[in-house]
Design a protein around this nucleic acid. Sequence first.
DNA 1: TCCCGCGCTGTTAGCCCTAACATACCGGTC
DNA 2: GACCGGTATGTTAGGGCTAACAGCGCGGGA
Lengths: 353, 353
Amino acid sequence: MNDGKIIPMTDDIKIPPRRPLTLKDVSEASGVSEMTVSRVLRNRGDVSDATREKVLAAAKSLGYVPNKIAGALASSRVNLVAVIIPSLSNMVFPEVMTGISEVLDDTPLQPVVGVTNYLPEKEEEVLFEMLSWRPSGVIIAGLEHSDASRAMLHASGIPVVEIMDVDGEPIDAMVGISHRRAGREMARAICKAGYENIGFLGTKMPLDHRARKRFEGFTEALAKEGVEVMDQEFYSGGSALKKGREMTQTILERSPDLDFLYYSNDMIGAGGLLYCLDAGIDVPGRIGLAGFNGVELLDGLPRKLATMDAGRREIGREAARIIAGRSDGSITETGQRVELTPKLQPGETLRRW
Amino acid sequence: MNDGKIIPMTDDIKIPPRRPLTLKDVSEASGVSEMTVSRVLRNRGDVSDATREKVLAAAKSLGYVPNKIAGALASSRVNLVAVIIPSLSNMVFPEVMTGISEVLDDTPLQPVVGVTNYLPEKEEEVLFEMLSWRPSGVIIAGLEHSDASRAMLHASGIPVVEIMDVDGEPIDAMVGISHRRAGREMARAICKAGYENIGFLGTKMPLDHRARKRFEGFTEALAKEGVEVMDQEFYSGGSALKKGREMTQTILERSPDLDFLYYSNDMIGAGGLLYCLDAGIDVPGRIGLAGFNGVELLDGLPRKLATMDAGRREIGREAARIIAGRSDGSITETGQRVELTPKLQPGETLRRW
DNA sequence: TCCCGCGCTGTTAGCCCTAACATACCGGTC
DNA sequence: GACCGGTATGTTAGGGCTAACAGCGCGGGA
């Protein structure tokens, strides 16, 4: 873990320096050349134990922290991986991050997060900013990007992994699930369970392409069974749980015949579930419910919501593995395509025969 | 094949660059010096409109992305702000991040997130790594750090804002609430509502100092009223909602006389609430419940949980303002101390007389 | 006419490190 | 003693950019 990094101790710290410390200071303090100090601090090349210890002691007592900016410029190696995601505030991306960190923790690489709020212009900005630091890799959510963004990624020559979604053409590598397929499978499960009057509840987000694709797959599979989505309801902003509750009430009042509600995420699904239970509606007898994501957070609801696990953690891991492999040279191919299989979790809100 | 250096002189020749683009390429393509290109791209100094446009066109057609590593080294200015937090997977830090981004979006600064998982050694590592990039500021959660971490922060000469907590001595500036006080106020509210047999449910995390301080304040204020915490229950890992449910069942079976349960966070509180409602327990008549954090996410529960809003977004904003101000020179003082006031939200799980 | 100041552009000298090569030293071999 | 290989250390030359200053042409005031 602590391979050659100097973490200063308090006891012999000098006065806060006005001029930032450099290798030269450590070199002078330990009586060897800057190069030798550099070698010691990076654990590279042959250095005698005596010298090594002398240098480490000096660095520690000065509280020297190497300047990676200079190091990166000199070696044209940067141990950062840009991770660009739309949001941190739903539960899905933090879990992807966990997967990424798990893998990168065993490498010299470090993730750096940028958030786009689902805005293409913001994505462009964040991407430009990140690329200007010449990271070792880019992990970016989704396959839909502005032309400028695609061009930048392309021109950068940096390994790129697009994650979450595989319904489309990647710039380089991609890791994810087919949201269209996830929608189709859920539709089939619903039909098989005998529901016929189906409502859809989602976010008012034209730019959430994955939600859109799920919906497309969903309606397509329903159509094959001769079923149509009977009513829809959309929301934006606010507490998802509360919105789910409210939307469910609204849609059921408007279309009392509905016997199934498909939610674009688990959180509003949970709100819907709570509403139905409060209102004394028989779930899944009278009405069935399903969400999407499989967020563990929601275990503990009065009834387990039917959902589809997108394998977010595994997506993060796999993407990180590709970047790490390309960075250390153990992978030379480009254009990997990894499709994971979303797992239907029927829970207790989907009727079983 | 094409081994000669090819520098496109017109806008329409684009070849995938084998050698990364530099200022020089843009300079040659536009027929001005590198310095002038640099000035144009940074909007600094006087450049004639004709030249500016020529340069911008060249840069765009080449797809040039400036190298901030070199720029930062030359100017010793880095527009990054290190944000070091324990976790992304509960709802609290993403909200702090939102506040930080809101403010930094109007500045040239960019947040970079590091996650410590509540581990001091990991914090040390992450901090070291971040400081080696010489950021313009550090925003770090908590006031408790290893000696080495404190020393590094001190020696760096970089503005530091410690957030969330104000019960302690900051290295430089701090922004947060008093968790001791939050605990005390909740205790007083509970006593005032007439509850007497109080249980505490929390995380098994000796390193979550803020939870600890809340608990200390809580017991202290109870003691003043002659009341003691009657039973306690702790958990670690897993879905907080589910754990809250299980813990509540456990503690109530063990200590059926309890008439109030104080949870160390809203999520387990919500689990407890769901359990009580399922079990047909009268809330808040027979048993009162309260959590901590005021997460909006949970609006929509069958009953609104009593909680205390920690003003996380505002904490983020205020911290970012301090860093931004110091970075642009509009603030020269150090050692700011900003104490925000947590707001008790009595909800519907606290009896009222 | 000279000189000054202004607006624009160019030149030079680093920023702090690291890659690559050069050198010094040592013991051992023939 | 000349030569070797190996280890340990030093020297040199940038990496791509920017700060600071220098230079140039031009118009206007003295």
